[in-house]
Amino acid sequence: MSSISLEVKDLAINLSGNQVIKDMNFKIKKNTLTTFLGPSGSGKTTVLRAIAGLNQKIAGKILLDDTEIQNLAANQRNIGMIFQSYALFPNLSVFENVAYGLRVRKEPKATIKEKVDAILKTVNLQDKEQSYPENLSGGQKQRVAIARAMVLEPKILLLDEPLSALDAKIRIELRNQIREYQQRLGITMLFVTHDQAEAMAISDEIIVMDNGKVQQQGSPLEIYTHPQNIFIAKFIGNHNILDAAQLRSLGVELAENDKSNFIIRPELFQISITGDSSDYMAVSGKVKNISILGDRFEYRFITENGLELKVEFLNQQQAFMIETAITFYVKKDNIERVGI
């Protein structure tokens, strides 16, 4: 049996005459949480809707468990979806919301009761089954939406920015909750977000999208540490991006015809070296600005030749004062070459 749950081949989507998705290809493994990450307008939701069958004017193939589904209507795909607004039906109780799909499938009443009770217990909402959506908190609504989707045992669950309307603290709580259910129930999830931290925190894999194309697919760590191009480097992290000339000006030897771009992650700077000094690039200059981010300090640092670099340290020691003259070190191996 294949380990791939969903495969998208040469997907192209036109909306109002504009090709918003171009030759897209990716695979999603079973029982993993994969995140579509990209800025607004990058095409994340468009692809998600195409997978769900809500946008059928597409070219290319969508395979779910090795079966082509691109020509099936939304109600024939056995895919679950959670919308940003959760789309709970306000006129139905929690029980009836969760039972909706089972009733559509004309399952026997006893089976419906048994399945709904079981899934409500799983999401800790057994005492809310007679409540209506208007009387639930944001977290409870989300759990009802998950239960409603999961009770049908879909082959994949799509989540379209389900946390974007919430404040920061609740977002963290709910994203952890989503991850917990994904792992506990062993669901394949495809999660859409524009929030890098959210994607990094809960994903097994991230698919970075921009301008209707997949820019990179990989584990969160892989994408963060080895971004394939400048867009990803800028979008996924707070990296320092330098061209070859700038890096040469800091004393790194490069071939004369080298036109590459390089990234240096701000947290990789050190204030002292261990081992061979020739392994390090030393950068001297002054602290221009400091931002206290709670757990760490972020410095804007001006080098002697006028380059501005971002440097981060954990909040474990006294912060450097503005205008402090200092030398930072970074291992040459940690200077990453990226494509354009």
């Binding site: 979806m81 607004s85 789309a87 559509v104």
Partner: peptide, 28 residues
């Protein structure tokens, strides 16, 4: 309400467009 999402949710849960309209949109 977000009727678009509610209507599409009913489709994804297996209903036909007419049934989704009658069962989800009209009552609300």
């Amino acid at each position: 309400h977000d009727f678009r999402a509610m209507f599409e949710q009913a489709l994804i849960l297996g209903d036909s467009p007419i049934k989704a309209f009658v069962k989800v949109v009209i009552p609300n």
